[in-house]
């Protein structure tokens, strides 16, 4: 492998790693801009990773899997919205509940459907060569070559980031979403349907997180394992905060986290001399140490939407 193809494949791998994190982070961005904290991203990713595989297993095509995953995203998102918006429940508590349930329910269903403990059989997925988006003409160009062989889910993550940016900062809907996250009482007095906006944002956010789960089970891998998600939802949450609650910020943070992962892999392979003596654990921990370092050094105090996480109750 020459240097250029190593560069391109590393970049492409970075994007592959970044996509699930980015989806989760974008889910967090839209939800928290409307003032609802969603730490259930992790659980939703796991649910969707499983349901996506289930759908693909039943139908034989990842597209139906994608549909199933979206539906479960809507269902869980609705539950979170019902608890936190309709009943002004604690957003963190609700998220914890969903995360805890995701473990139990999925293992339950795995045994019920696949008669297995902790993993599913392989299913058709977006990562297979037929389903990838081939842009052959880019293949030998530095940097751009990384885009020559991505899955549709990675492309979608990139497009979604751009779309989200425009929706949040250029459209009427975005203005209203942000106003609800900043000062729901003010928005209410202006006749904005605060609860409606929050429901919408939470459900959209959950759908994005669902895509994140499927980027794992139908994008990178072709099956579900119980270790799936494995904290990616929480890393997504960190990426959102790191990215200061903006879509492009979230993208940059996701790429940073992912590139730390890839660098760690490269270092492990390419390490020589002194670096070879460094135990694997340090390489694996590196992305997380880097993140803390970056937060100390560069970002400083991030600013959340003013009414983020505050249950909104209408006066009676």
């Amino acid at each position: 492998m020459n240097n250029m193809s190593l560069l391109n494949s590393s970049l492409s791998q970075t994007m592959d790693y970044a996509a699930p994190i980015l989806f989760a982070a974008l889910g967090g961005v839209i939800s928290e801009n409307a003032g609802v904290v969603n730490i259930a991203l992790e659980g939703i990713m796991r649910f969707a990773a499983f349901f996506g595989v289930w759908g693909a297993f039943v139908s034989g095509t990842p597209w139906i899997g994608l549909l199933w995953g979206i539906v479960i995203g809507i269902v869980i998102g609705s539950l979170h919205a019902y608890i936190t918006v309709k009943w002004a429940g604690d957003q963190i508590v609700s998220g914890v509940a969903i995360n805890v349930m995701s473990m139990g329910i999925i293992t339950y269903l795995l045994e019920l459907i696949f008669k297995t403990t902790g993993y599913s059989p392989p299913v058709p997925y977006f990562g297979s060569s037929v389903n990838r988006i081939h842009l052959v003409f880019l293949k030998d160009i530095p940097f751009l070559g990384a885009f020559s062989n991505l899955t549709i889910l990675v492309w979608f993550a990139i497009i979604l980031t751009v779309v989200m940016h425009f929706v949040l900062y250029r459209t009427v809907l975005g203005l209203r979403i942000r106003s609800v996250g900043e000062n729901p009482h003010a928005a209410e007095t202006l006749g904005i349907n605060v609860a409606g906006i929050k429901w919408f944002a939470v459900i959209m956010g959950s759908i994005f997180a669902a895509f994140g789960g499927m980027a794992l089970s139908l994008g990178t891998l072709s099956s579900f394992t119980n270790a799936m998600a494995n904290g990616k939802g929480f890393i997504g949450l960190a990426a959102m905060i790191f990215g200061k609650w903006t879509p492009f910020g979230a993208m940059a943070a996701s790429l940073l986290f992912a590139s730390a992962q890839v660098i760690q892999l490269l270092l492990q392979v390419a390490a020589s001399g002194f670096a070879k003596g460094i135990p694997l654990g340090f390489y694996l921990a590196l992305p997380y140490i880097l993140t803390i370092g970056a937060l100390i050094g560069v970002v400083g105090r991030a600013v959340a939407p003013a009414a983020d996480g505050v249950p909104y109750k209408k006066e009676s």
Binding site: R170, T171, V172, L175, R176, S179, L190, G191, A306
Partner: peptide
């Protein structure tokens, strides 16, 4: 005041009754 400190004067005034160009603000 029912204002959103991080929004501009314009955004605060038109919120809820925004002039649109299609779906855009």
């Amino acid at each position: 005041f029912m204002l959103i400190p991080r929004f501009s004067v314009t955004e605060n005034i038109v919120l809820g009754h925004e002039p649109r160009k299609g779906m855009f603000f």
